[in-house]
Design a protein around this nucleic acid. Structure first.
Length: 223
DNA sequence: TGCCAGGCCGGGT
DNA sequence: ACCCGGCATGGC
């Protein structure tokens, strides 16, 4: 598909999704710290479960880098239990906290002042922070212009014929970044809209989605 | 009731 | 360079 066609299609998809669902007002979280913690907690996990875990952290007054740093594994794991994978996620959160406190003493202004590319590399070096989590933190907590890709994004693009089966994260990310204006608000909205269409109709098993804002004839309905 | 949810890591081939 | 099992809760 020619580059200009891809660019137009991606813009049309965005506009159709926005018309169908309206602005998503993402990320659902009040502070940068909450967004960063939520990004780890939502790994392969339903957001409603994450909300419970975050509510527990708030009740314990634990959404704070130094408090988190002082907390023991078992205490943290108990608080985030509803989010699932609580032992894994407690470890991952502690790794992130160690880095934020160790490198910046919890100063997020200092942290996000680093360049997008540098910060992305550094986040990826933290054990437990992969590409989607890093990009979510950069975009939604830091306001950095970087496109977030997730399972929904890949499935939607695959079903509507824009990528093939084996397209990996970086390729999909570059498809958006190379064909859209470099605009934080646009990236923010687009990713949130892709999640919404993924939840509404582009689900793993539904054979066909007649109501889909992007059209009713997906290429691949098997997954 | 089984399937799914806004991944990521580590070990094996 | 892939491929796969493990990790866990809660909603439908």
């Amino acid at each position: 598909m020619p580059r200009s066609t891809t660019a137009r299609t991606l813009r049309e998809f965005h506009d159709a999704l926005l018309a169908a669902y309206g602005p998503r007002h993402w990320w659902p979280g009040e502070t940068r710290t909450e967004i960063m913690v939520g990004a780890v907690l939502t790994q392969n996990t339903n957001w409603t479960n994450v909300e419970r875990a975050i509510a527990n952290l708030k009740s314990a007054d634990a959404l704070d880098w130094h408090r988190l740093n002082d907390m023991g594994h078992d205490e943290l794991a108990a608080l985030i239990r509803p989010a699932g994978y609580f032992n894994v996620k407690a470890r991952r959160l502690k790794k992130l906290v160690e880095w934020v406190v160790g490198e910046f003493d919890g100063d997020l202004d200092a942290m996000f002042a680093r360049s997008t590319a540098t910060l992305r590399e550094e986040l990826l070096n933290v054990n437990g922070i992969g590409r989607e989590t890093a990009d979510s933190i950069l975009l939604y907590a830091g306001g950095h212009v970087t496109f977030v890709v997730d399972a929904y994004t890949a499935r939607v693009l695959r079903r509507h014929g824009l990528i093939d089966e084996d397209a990996d994260y970086e390729l999909i990310k570059e498809l958006f970044e190379g064909n859209l204006p470099e605009d934080e608000k646009l990236y923010n909205e687009y990713h949130a809209l892709l999640v919404e269409v993924g939840k509404q109709c582009c689900r793993p098993r539904n054979a066909r989605c007649e109501e889909c804002p992007l059209g009713a004839f997906p290429h691949d309905t098997s997954r």
